[in-house]
Design a protein around this nucleic acid. Structure first.
Lengths: 151, 151
DNA sequence: ACATAATTGAAAATGGTTGTCAATATAAAC
DNA sequence: GTTTATATTGACAACCATTTTCAATTATGT
């Protein structure tokens, strides 16, 4: 199991390196630190949160660099930026083609992911009805998780 | 047809006035102007956009007042605030219980509304599976409208 | 009309994000 | 290994939408 997780990390790292090379960008110490810390964390971290984690490992890395690097992650497809209504962007790892949506607890901030192919199909029906060419979508369900609901 | 639209406007106005009374808030000239202009416009206006429209009718109304009044509309349930990824909140009229979602054109900014009870049901299934108590949700499909796709 | 409390508008503050720029580090060429 | 051209960095400032502040004004109940 830990092998597959490591394998994933290596693969994402390679994707990023390839992207840098293809754009004539450079592979720097900071970018590697930020990528490693990003891969270690659970998903849905804000720039601020990741910045603090990165600082813990190397205090010389600046906020702007973390921000710019996260944008690069998004550009090369290994991360996606999301907004959950708290006014700040959050970044999540993207693995392959599978799309997922989110359950967000308005009590404690817990974010769960889910997939539902049936919903995806119905979305495509809606798009077809309106002759829209869908590029992406987002679906978020807001409410209380079991723990918060029982309080 | 124009009777039902007018009827709706009267009803929403009354809902707002009732809300003000119930909270010990006051019915002011500005609030009435802002509500009237809001009802005249098509939905999904940003604070800035509504502010400019209100200014056209009465140049003395300030931005902060428009903003605070829109928040009041949202509180009393006649409007809802949405975010479509362009970094600013947009407000839409709420009529009754019916929920709707959005198709957003990434080319021209067109926003279409749609309803799909089947999707809503599936969402409830997902919530049940995770024992979440859903308060609200949002679903947005981003892509190109027919006009933009054919360019 | 009076008193009490809410509202207003202008301006400043806030918070997240993005831009600037001189100093530094990288990758390729020599 | 050195040189050269170019990208990157970090500290800071700028930005934009939103929110707060506060003295002056206005609305409502008595």
């Amino acid at each position: 199991m830990s092998e597959t997780i490591q394998g994933l990390a290596v693969e994402l790292k390679q994707t990023f390196l390839d992207y840098l090379a293809s754009k004539g960008l450079k592979n720097t110490t900071q970018r590697m630190i930020i990528l490693e810390v990003f891969l270690e964390q659970k998903s849905h971290l804000s720039t601020e949160e990741l910045y603090l984690k990165v600082r813990g490992k190397n205090p010389k890395v600046g906020y702007a660099t973390v921000h710019r690097t996260l944008k690069l992650f998004a550009e090369c497809g290994i991360a996606a930026e999301r907004h959950f209504g708290d006014g700040q962007g959050r970044f999540e790892l993207v693995h392959g083609e599978d799309h997922h949506d989110h359950l967000v607890c308005t009590g404690c901030g817990l974010i769960l992911e889910f997939e539902n192919p049936q919903i995806e199909e119905l979305q495509e029906d809606v798009a077809r009805q309106h002759r829209f060419t869908i590029e992406n979508h987002r679906l978020e369900l807001y409410g209380l998780c079991p723990a918060c609901a029982s309080k």
